[in-house]
Write a protein that binds this DNA or RNA. Structure first.
Lengths: 223, 223
DNA sequence: TGATGTTCTAATGTTGACATTGAGACATCG
DNA sequence: CGATGTCTCAATGTCAACATTAGAACATCA
């Protein structure tokens, strides 16, 4: 159905622990600034501290948590500078990803982008579940990075992806009208230009897409 | 002398193990494709397997080694695609780093760039130790990323820095004339434009600087 | 009283032992 | 003889006990 047996890679407990903790952070169970104690998590997840430790190291690579020598691990908090840094870097990465994908994307991959835009539109027209809308937004960009086919670029994207997810969800708590009003159109335009746009126009749009998101987010933040 | 006690952070054994293994890889002790066995390293470094394991995970973040479920860790190979990926991403990162540093760099940081260029020139005129020349090249770009002051951007740079180091050293074994002929001038021009260039010219030069390196490296590689 | 030194403790850092697995050697069958 | 199944073992994955440390509570002294 979904895909022709790409692989069914058995992963370790560390990966699963990382997935669980990441989900808990994104769901709000661990708010920004919360301390993540290894013993506590190990007991709750029913794995050893070593595995939890390895999983937390993974989340640190993703920038979702911060840790220090003998000082434990805590969820990052969302300062204006953090937002500035992540969105600035993301603009540069997206610029490269979109211009690359413009050359390398297969028809199937482009169709998948259209499908995701359609899903967004349906979500807006329907229940408008903000969490799902944000997930679709990120999935859209995941697909672009996949289509670009540059492993290192995808790794760099993964290193800010979770932070981005956290930022967008955080904003969801405080009014999301502007986002909802533009998210479908902006992504539809991106998908269209990936098919038929010239490189420079696409590069500019990709940067503006991110810049608009950054300004919109910062406007509601300076707390 | 050096700096006014910024900090003397005690690090863990894992970090030291990572440093040692990284140095061993870059020195050629572990050639591309070599297997890094945890027990072996643990015995040789006189630390536990756990610490070695954590250190190897760190090197994996840097892209210097690859690992899989129950399949051990090996030094990455240097294929044409690897070079293509790393240099393409680096061009995008450097573009952002230089244009940002143009706004944020302090006079002291700019002076340090000049100093590094002078060191390169001295090295060329003198013994022309290739390893040291490559180290200066990378230190130059380290300084630019530091001056840009974007933590996430610096993290993304670190994720390809060691690979880049490995690539450049690998090429050093097979003729380095073109590199030696241009490295000083190119970096001097970059330093100059960081002081007085306009944004667009600087962005273009930063990309060309990397693109030139990539082509030069790929030319001598397809083995 | 405020600054400095000390003690205590909860949490992380580190380790060696045990469990599991992947890949090749070997045997078996068509 | 080639393909397939089984076995073996070295290497990794996991775990629980022990060692170390950062920070806070407390005591001490000018």
């Amino acid at each position: 159905m979904s895909s022709a047996l790409p692989k069914a890679p058995r992963r370790g407990l560390a990966d699963e622990a990382a997935d669980l903790v990441r989900a808990a952070i994104l769901s709000g169970h661990f708010p920004p600034g919360a301390a993540l104690r290894e013993v506590e998590l190990a007991a709750h997840l029913d794995v050893s501290r070593g595995s939890v430790r390895e999983g937390l190291a993974q989340l640190e690579r993703e920038g979702l948590v911060r840790g220090g020598w003998h000082r434990g691990t805590t969820v990052i908090d969302v300062t204006a500078q953090d937002v500035e840094e992540v969105y600035t870097l993301r603009a540069a990465l997206d610029r490269l990803a979109t211009t690359t994908a413009r050359r390398t994307a297969t028809p199937e991959q482009l169709s998948r982008l259209d499908q995701l835009v359609a899903d967004m539109a349906a979500e807006i027209a329907g229940t408008a579940d903000t969490r799902r809308l944000v997930a679709l937004d990120i999935a859209f960009h995941d697909q672009i990075y996949t289509a670009a086919g540059n492993g290192r670029l995808t790794t760099a994207w993964r290193a800010i992806r979770s932070q981005l997810h956290l930022f967008q969800l955080r904003r969801a708590d405080a009014g999301y009208d502007h986002y909802r009003a533009r998210v479908v159109d902006e992504h539809r335009e991106l998908a269209a230009l990936l098919r038929s746009g010239d490189r420079r126009t696409l590069a500019r749009l990709a940067e503006e897409h991110v810049d608009s998101a950054r300004r919109s987010l910062l406007a509601g933040l300076p707390d």
